[in-house]
């Protein structure tokens, strides 16, 4: 039963990484879109693509947190207490980002919109960066079990964390380019497609370079994870490399149909490779799934609730994605 909860947890984290990751990347591109006039088409594309879905995508994070604290309470306590600095910055980043995006959209005047833009853009970099450092801290085994037992600064500033932060930001940017490009193509925005292709190629190349660095860093800084990734996790690592390469190649050759799917697949497979490599350690060296799992009555209630929830959530999500792609009726106001 603990494994079932873990699968739900990791499913939530994966969904958050892919979907909210693309939304974060949208914020990065919004920041870098240039002047009000020159960046207008791109910014409009970003707002139109992210607007209807970002709140639903954001809920995956809350989902993952509540599943973690219900299913594996001591792990939640250990992670949040030792990593309180980056997690607080993530929390504040989420507030700044979400509110400035929503307020900017609602603000009727350009001056107000412009004042809110940097909050959205900068927080879209800060938030995934610190989430990446948290992932790095966990992957390199710097968070021990117990309350605030790890070093509150050194736990998340090691090589794996810094790499994780950088990869998270660049990865989000690539995902966003791939997602936005597909939306722009559907709506026949040729200039925007071209702009995101260029940006995708650059961030894709940076991602690839960072991944090569990762081989060295993980080997030295997170040897247990490295061993896992090169044994049990290897098929998934290879799948991720292939998907990334394919995504970049399709982007290069303007075969856009596959870019988005392969980019998402690359993220999914690398996250599950990490999970497979680290299993059954939740906190490397100090807590396994069996040690940290809640008693079975809780796990059973949780799995039942989540299963029922999934039956409602997934079709609703599909409905949302379907409806926002419907054409707007003629004669109506733009909302």
């Amino acid at each position: 039963m603990a494994t079932a909860v873990l699968v739900f947890l990791w499913f939530g984290i994966t969904a958050y990484a892919v979907l909210a990751g693309a939304d974060f990347g949208g914020g990065v591109w919004d920041l870098l879109a240039g002047t009000t006039q020159g960046g207008r088409a791109m910014r409009r594309r970003i707002a139109a693509s992210i607007g209807p879905v970002w709140e639903a995508n954001h809920v995956w994070l809350i989902f993952a947190l509540v599943v973690l604290w219900t299913g594996f309470p001591p792990v939640f306590a250990a992670v949040t207490s030792t990593l309180y600095v980056p997690l607080s910055l993530v929390g504040l980043g989420i507030i700044v980002r979400g509110s400035s995006f929503a307020l900017r959209k609602a603000a009727p005047q350009m001056a107000l919109k412009r004042a809110l833009s940097p909050g959205f853009g900068l927080a879209s970099i800060v938030t995934p960066f610190f989430l990446g450092t948290v992932a790095g801290a966990l992957a390199s085994g710097r968070v021990p079990a117990g309350i605030a037992r790890g070093d509150i600064l050194r736990s998340w500033t090691g090589p794996t964390s810094l790499l994780g932060g950088a990869l998270a930001v660049v990865g989000c940017a690539y995902l966003a380019a791939a997602f936005l490009l597909a939306d722009a193509r559907r709506d026949d925005e040729a200039d925007v497609v071209e702009a995101f292709r260029r940006r995708g190629l650059i961030t894709g190349a940076v991602c690839a370079a960072l991944s090569v660095v990762a081989i060295v860093v993980l080997r030295l800084d997170a040897p247990r994870l490295f061993n896992g990734l090169t044994s049990v996790g290897l098929p998934l690592v290879i799948a991720s490399v292939v998907a990334s390469a394919l995504s970049l190649l399709c982007l290069w050759r303007r075969r856009y149909a596959l870019v988005r799917g392969t980019a998402a697949l690359a993220v999914v497979t690398i996250l599950w490779a990490w999970a497979a490599a680290q299993y059954p350690q939740l906190l490397v060296g100090s807590a396994t799934v069996a040690q940290a799992a809640a008693p079975s009555a809780t796990l059973t209630a949780l799995v039942i609730s989540l299963s029922i929830g999934t039956v409602f959530v997934l079709p609703s999500l599909a409905g949302l994605l379907y409806i926002v792609r419907l054409p707007q009726k003629a004669g109506s106001q733009a909302s």
Partner: peptide, 21 residues
Amino acid sequence: LGTFGSVIGLPFALEGIAFFI
């Protein structure tokens, strides 16, 4: 929650689902 997460985490998970919807 580190101590009582297994007791009182469930309504938070249910809230998460409701909030999703």
